[in-house]
Design a protein around this nucleic acid. Structure first.
Length: 558
RNA sequence: GCGCCUGUAGCUCAGUGGAUGAGAGCACCGGACUUCGGAUCCGGGUGUCGGGGGUUCGAAUCCCUCCAGGCGCGCCA
């Protein structure tokens, strides 16, 4: 049990004992606020419970706090509890709880920080899902590390997680048609024809390279393919496998491996899109107007109704997404589905929620996380990125430049709600002075101590007394280790992977301070050395665990 | 026009109801080690928390309003 819950439990008991009449409000233990005070003089933990219930009870918060403190059950972990300020209860704990936390960390090893809060909930995280029309680039990469680490966090708190990439490879996808037409145009150019490049076409050099590959393999075989939609799709089919392989390998380079690559085409080929549309018509959720089929999303919170089958008979993107959602929730039975989308999908959320509502799916089981724009700066100037214009900066280039760990760290550090300025000059310049190295170096240093200790056989067979750890820097470090499990839980609950790099930096800082001020290996003080080695071991576990959650290496040597 | 995100130190960003301390990294200045890796540590901050109003015992945090930047609003995805 983490310490906060232990304190909550004590407070709940004290509160129950304090109540004199049944109509007074009950307090749920989970809702009792426990926090770490900014000012260390205010104790190790503080609760504002008395201030919270004071209003409801119409009583003086300080008096309530006094009664609660008086009614606290005995617990050896509490050195003293006192009322402060307008009615805070400050807990000053015995350092034993920190030593207990270290013992628990050592016992649990790589499991330390994990919990069963998620209770086996079956969760799908769908992320990246970029169209197969080009490589992963700086604009659409952000969802990658975010989704991956969110999935790690949910796993860590006991959910059963699936990572999914939704591949929009259906022939009805207009983007694919334009892309295929672009390849075709380049192909014909290579064969010496004068062609009008599609107005909205993809201008990247990689499109030319794809066309060159077709020439190399098939020569002029595809010269007479008509320059229409069907023709464009012929060319898309020629390059599709390459595109998917590119996406897969780009994700892999980012350290992301999906459990499932789900093809939109399958939904169409299995007739699921048609079937869902028919079902919606039968239930009255969809209707015909202007030769198109409309979904009554307006009745479910969207601004207006939306077309799901176009006048030409082709289903729109949302029709596929309806079939896809049915597959997620009904066929595969996920309890919860998290969509991680780019900022361009923002306007799509209300209609997707409305569509779920029209399908009878509890909207509360779907979460939509929109990450904000990434601006790419070069020479201090923002660059507009467009796959179509071809001025893309691929994630490959960035990885080759500053390394995978740094790329992940940079993306993860910011909240998804915040716009992200990716300044490559700065990233390059900082790559030697990068925050990620600060964290990794802390791990490396600890490994160095452990290597040295092993050679000198410091631990021996003696019983180790970790209660010897009382130096301020030791206590600070112990506190950080003790805080780790709650940090993981909060990061998962708040869907806030960016908390991890921040916590890791704080932890690394306490490690470096400890390292500087507390000599571990000292043959003159074998008992202290042994206790400190236990602390080093525990700290190394936590560093490795948190870096693992972030998908970043924890090197033993650098 | 409507909707959403953002606005915190020179720069990039955490903190999103708590306390007479609003923090970190970078940058800049000055210090520290004969032993575990100096990719380290220590010291140096007069910030209108975008402006204004409100709610509250308490607001960077919640509400209203205004300003600024970004993004979205298709029978594209």
């Amino acid at each position: 049990m983490i310490i906060e819950d232990r304190l909550r439990d004590l407070l709940r008991q004290a509160y129950a004992a304090m109540l004199t009449s049944p109509e007074q409000p009950d307090v749920v233990a989970g809702e009792i606020g426990i926090e770490t005070p900014n000012n260390p003089q205010h104790g190790d933990f503080a609760s504002n419970i008395a201030l919270q219930v004071g209003r409801e009870l119409g009583a003086n918060p300080r008096e309530i706090a006094q009664k609660l403190v008086a009614g606290l059950p005995d617990d050896p972990v509490i050195e003293r509890a006192e009322v402060a300020g307008p009615g805070f209860i400050n807990f000053h704990l015995s350092p034993h709880w920190l030593h207990d936390a270290l013992a628990e960390c050592l016992a649990q090893g790589e499991r330390y920080g994990r919990s069963d809060f998620g209770a086996g909930e079956k969760v799908q995280v769908e992320f990246v899902s970029a169209n197969p029309v080009g490589p992963i680039h700086i604009g659409n990469a952000r969802g990658g590390p975010f989704g991956d680490v969110l999935a790690n966090l949910l796993e860590a708190v006991g959910c059963e997680v699936q990572r999914e990439y939704y591949l929009n490879d259906a022939p009805t996808n207009t983007q694919l048609q334009i892309f295929g037409a672009s390849v075709q145009a380049r192909y014909r150019e290579l064969l010496g024809e004068a062609v009008d490049f599609p107005e909205e076409g993809y201008h990247g050099d990689y499109v030319v390279e794809l066309a060159q590959a077709i020439v190399a393999e098939y020569g002029e075989e595809y010269r007479d393919v008509p320059a229409d939609t069907d023709g464009a799709l012929v060319f898309f089919e020629l390059v599709k496998d390459k595109m998917v392989e590119q996406l897969r390998s780009d994700c892999s380079a980012l350290g992301i491996e999906f459990d499932e690559w789900f093809c939109e085409t399958d939904l169409h080929e299995q007739g699921l899109v048609r079937r869902q549309v028919d079902e919606l018509r039968e239930s009255g959720a969809a209707y015909e107007k202007d030769d198109a089929t409309w979904l009554r999303t307006g009745d479910f919170g969207d601004e207006e109704d939306r077309v799901i089958v176009r006048r030409d008979g082709a289903p729109t993107y949302i029709a596929s997404d309806i079939a896809y959602a049915a597959n997620k929730f009904y066929t595969r039975g996920f309890d919860r589905v998290i969509y991680v989308w780019g900022p361009d999908h923002f306007g799509y959320v209300p209609r997707m929620k409305a569509a779920l509502g029209a399908m009878g799916i509890d909207v509360g089981r779907a979460e939509f996380i929109i990450y904000q724009t990434v601006r790419f700066l070069e020479g201090g100037e923002p660059l507009r990125l467009s796959k179509r214009r071809g001025d893309i900066v691929t994630i490959r280039e960035i990885i080759d430049d500053i390394g995978r760990d740094a790329v992940r760290f940079f993306f993860l550090m910011r909240s998804v709600d915040a716009h992200l300025d990716f300044d490559l000059d700065l990233a390059r310049q900082q790559s030697a002075e990068n925050p990620v190295y600060y964290v990794q170096y802390a791990h490396t240093r600890l490994c160095g101590i452990l290597r040295e200790a092993e050679q000198a056989d410091y631990l021996g067979k003696e019983e180790v007394d970790i209660s010897l750890l009382t130096h301020p820097d030791e206590l600070t470090l112990l506190r950080k280790l003790a805080d780790y499990p709650a940090e993981v839980l909060h990061a998962a609950q708040q869907r806030a992977p960016h908390r991890l790099p921040h916590f890791a930096l704080e932890l690394a800082q306490t490690v470096h301070q400890f390292y500087t001020n507390c000599r571990v290996l000292d043959s003159g003080n074998p008992e202290t050395s042994r206790a400190r080695l236990k602390l080093v071991e525990g700290t190394r576990i936590v560093l490795r665990n948190i870096l693992g959650l972030m998908g970043i290496d924890a090197p033993e040597k650098m």
